[in-house]
Amino acid sequence: GPLCATALGDARQPGSVRALMANVANIGEGLRDRLASDFWRLVRLPLPAFDGAVTETLLDASSRLIERFSALSGLAAENMGRSDGWRFHDMGRRMERAIAGCRLLTLFGGDNASDDDLILLLDLMDSQISYRTRYLSGPALAPVRDLLALEPHNPRAILYQAQRLADHVAALPTLRADGMPEEPRRLADALVARLAPLTGDMLAIADIADAESRLLGLSDAIGQRYFLQVRKTESADLLA
């Protein structure tokens, strides 16, 4: 109970739902004239009230928040123009989902994972129905790892995110006149090439850790290549 309440509502925790929604609202303030009214209304809705000691209210608040976030995601999917700006929006989603997937697989999909661990892992990665559709037996380590890390048609799988990231990076403008790929594209393509030949029985925790490291490196490369980098001293001079 207290742990869930902290994850939902503790503004002092940078990864809590309350803190993240506050960040979204702050960003939205600067883009207010570019946001649809429905999107802005959902962003500005207060968080559901809940009692941190009562499981039922925590579950109710979580369900209502999932509905709200699903609506926000749906608005972006259906109404946002497919410009380069949308590519960065989708890359951020794919990057976060892939990194979270790596960490969840490391926590619950280790070599000694129990059936309960694997069931929880499938639930956390929204792949329970996909697993039951494909496999008639209960959860087993190799098939779970294959579905969650390496299945190119599972929209929650790590490889699926890596392929979408590579597609986006390949479609972005390049500064090189010689036709050679820039660092973000090299890193994205290398990540896909690293994961694509593997199967669930070949995949080890070390491979998942390597994928997370590559994703973090790709994130840094995208930021360095496509976003203005201002050193702190320069920023202070500009504000002086």
Rank of each mutant, 00 (worst) to 15 (best):
G1H: 13
G1S: 13
P2V: 03
L3M: 12
L3R: 14
A5E: 02
A7P: 03
A7K: 07
A11C: 06
Q13D: 10
G15C: 06
R18E: 09
R18F: 05
A19G: 04
V24G: 04
A25G: 07
N26C: 10
N26F: 11
E29K: 13
E29D: 12
L35N: 04
S37F: 15
S37Q: 14
F39I: 11
R41S: 12
R41N: 07
P46I: 03
L47P: 00
P48M: 00
F50I: 00
F50H: 03
D51F: 04
D51E: 11
G52F: 00
A53G: 07
E56D: 15
L59N: 13
L59F: 08
E67W: 02
E67L: 12
F69N: 05
L72Q: 00
A76G: 06
E78K: 15
E78G: 09
M80F: 05
M80G: 01
M80P: 04
M80C: 10
R82V: 02
G85P: 02
R93V: 12
E96F: 11
R97M: 09
A98W: 02
I99D: 11
R103G: 06
L107T: 08
F108P: 00
G110F: 05
G110V: 02
D111S: 09
N112K: 13
A113P: 01
D115F: 01
D116C: 09
L118M: 08
L120S: 09
D123P: 02
L124I: 03
L124R: 12
L124N: 00
Q128K: 14
S130N: 14
Y135Q: 08
L136W: 10
S137Q: 15
L141E: 04
P143Y: 10
V144C: 06
V144G: 02
L148W: 01
L148Q: 02
A149R: 02
L150K: 02
P152W: 00
Q161S: 15
A162W: 01
L165I: 01
D167T: 10
L172F: 05
L175A: 15
R176C: 03
D178V: 03
D178P: 08
D178C: 05
G179K: 07
M180I: 10
P181K: 09
P181V: 03
P181W: 02
E182W: 04
E183M: 13
R186I: 10
L187P: 08
L187D: 09
L187S: 13
A188N: 11
A188W: 12
A188Q: 09
L195F: 08
P197Q: 13
T199P: 06
G200Q: 10
G200L: 11
D201W: 11
L203V: 05
A204W: 09
I205R: 14
I208K: 07
A211E: 05
L215Q: 01
L216M: 15
G217I: 00
D220P: 05
A221F: 00
Q224Y: 12
Q224N: 10
Q224I: 10
F227R: 05
F227P: 04
L228F: 08
R231W: 13
S235C: 10
S235W: 12
L239S: 14
